[in-house]
Computed example of a mutant assay.
Amino acid sequence: MVPSEITTEYRDGVALIRLEGEFDLTNADDVQDAVVATTAAGVVLDVTAVSYLDSSGIRAIDRGHRQLASEQRSLFIVSPPGTPSSWTFRVAGFGGDVVLETLEAALASALRTRIAS
Rank of each mutant, 00 (worst) to 15 (best):
I77D: 09
G82M: 11
D12A: 08
Q32R: 14
T48E: 12
V14R: 09
D62Y: 14
T83C: 02
Q32N: 04
E71T: 03
L19V: 09
R66G: 12
R59Y: 12
D29A: 12
V44L: 03
V50K: 08
N27C: 05
V98H: 07
F76G: 03
L53K: 03
D46E: 13
L19S: 07
V31W: 06
P84L: 06
V50Y: 04
F76E: 01
L25Y: 14
V47Y: 10
A106M: 06
A41S: 12
I58H: 05
L53T: 00
G21C: 04
R11V: 15
L68N: 01
I115V: 15
F89I: 03
I6R: 04
A49I: 02
Y10N: 14
S117M: 11
A116L: 09
V99Q: 00
A92R: 08
A15K: 01
V2T: 14
V14N: 01
V2N: 15
R66W: 10
L107R: 00
D46K: 09
S4C: 04
E71S: 09
N27I: 10
S117I: 05
L68R: 00
L111A: 14
V99C: 07
F76T: 02
A110L: 08
R90D: 14
D24G: 06
G95D: 13
L103F: 05
E101H: 10
I77W: 05
A49F: 03
A34D: 01
L16N: 04
E104S: 13
V31S: 01
A108N: 11
